[in-house]
Structure formats: structure tokens, C-alpha cells
Amino acid sequence: MPSTKTLREGSTPKRAAILAAARELFLANGFDRSSVDAVAARAEVSKRTVYDYFGDKRTLLQAVVDTVGESLVTTIRRILDDTLTDVADLTETADLEDVLVAFSMRIATDMLGSAEYATLQRLVRTQAGSVPEGGENALADTPDEALAERFAALAEAGLLDVPDARLAADQFIALTFNVPLNRYGSANAAEDGRVRPLVVEGVRTFLRAYRAG
């Protein structure tokens, strides 16, 4: 059972060192075989400091997962800003198809092909029984909601007909990324050339459903 003690925020460099040490050890040795003593030694802090900052080892694991997830969310938001911000410049759905394909391919390479994503997958897959209940989804709803905001803006610009922006975002993700994930076990376009055609067709299917007019 996770600790209920009051935790200290403490020193930012020490917290970062503990998280980095825990991440390395959990990946290399597994959660069960990685002791708090080993984490403290690698982070060059006291065992007491680890407990003061994180309470127990399971909470530390969740903090590692959350930190990786937050990094991925930052990547997704950067890609959104790079590709789906200037909606006023889009005048035709053909332009929109190109932009949505560009966005999807950036996700499939910069995010799904990243070391951070691979780390998150390994942590959740191999330590699934140790991550606290409800903690498996480190990305939570943040990326879906951010994409929904962009779709709502595209609807306001008259390019999409989107009665429910969040549902549209969920369906877009299912059409573009879940298909290669289900078929190939990965949507990493950086390593698998079969991903792009499925992503492109997913975008086209989405536009057939949500194209304005």
C-alpha cells in the first residue's frame, strides 16, 4: 500500500537525481530487484531523503512513469503548435489533409519513435503489477483534449464539421495510430515503412466523416 505520509518537495536537483536513478534501475533490473538503498546510492542521496521525497518505492515508480509521460505530453504539444496552429492559412480540405498527415507523421516519429515512449512502454509493461491502481495511463487525457481544441478551432474556421470535438479527437487517434498498433504492434513510422500508408488512409477516412460542407 502506498505511503500516506506527508512528503517533502525538497531540492529540485535531488528530486531529479532520484528519479533518474530509479528510472535507470527499474529498467535495468526490474522494480522488485531494485532497492531503495540502490536508488539512494546511485542518486548520491540518503535513503531517508528518498523516503521523505517519495514515501515508498511504488510511489517512486509512479513518479518515474508520470515524469516520462509529462515529457511525452510536452512533445505532443510542441508538434501540435508546429503543425496545427495557423488554421487561418488553410483554405481547402486538401490543404487540411496535408497538415493532418504531417501532424500524424510527426507523432509517429518524434513521439512514438522516441526513447521516452519506448521507456514508458517498458516501464508500464514490465512493472504493470507494481504501478499503483489508475497509474498505468501516464499520458491521461491531456493529448486527446489538446487535439480536440485544435479540431474545435478548425470547425470554427469552417474546415470541419465537429459536433463533439473530443469524440472527433478520439476517433482520429483510433484511425491513424491504433490501426498500425493493432496490426503491427507499433505505430513507430521511424522504423516501419508500413505505418505511413495506414496513417494517410486514416486521415482520409477521418476527413470523409468530418469534412465541412
Rank of each mutant, 00 (worst) to 15 (best):
R8V: 10
S11T: 12
T12W: 03
R15G: 05
R15W: 04
A17W: 09
I18A: 11
L19G: 12
E24G: 02
E24R: 09
L27Q: 09
A28W: 01
N29D: 15
G30E: 05
D32Q: 13
D32V: 15
S35D: 10
A38F: 00
A40D: 09
A43M: 14
E44K: 15
E44P: 07
E44D: 15
E44G: 14
V45I: 11
K47D: 03
Y53Q: 11
F54T: 13
K57E: 12
R58Y: 06
R58M: 08
L61G: 14
V65D: 11
G69F: 01
S71P: 00
L72D: 06
L72E: 03
V73T: 09
T74Q: 13
T75F: 05
R78Y: 00
T83P: 06
T85K: 13
D86Y: 05
A88H: 12
D89W: 10
L90A: 15
E92Q: 13
L96V: 12
L96N: 14
D98A: 15
D98G: 15
T109I: 08
T109H: 05
D110P: 00
M111L: 10
G113A: 02
G113V: 00
E116H: 00
A118P: 00
T119A: 06
R122C: 05
R122A: 14
R125M: 01
T126P: 01
A128K: 12
A128Q: 07
A128Y: 09
S130F: 12
P132R: 04
P132M: 03
P132A: 06
E136S: 08
L139C: 03
A140G: 01
T142G: 01
T142P: 01
E145Q: 07
A148R: 06
A148S: 08
A152I: 04
A157R: 10
V162A: 04
D164C: 05
L167N: 02
A168H: 03
A169Q: 03
A169I: 00
D170H: 04
F177H: 11
L181C: 02
D192N: 11
G193F: 06
R194S: 03
V200N: 02
V203W: 12
T205R: 13
A212M: 01
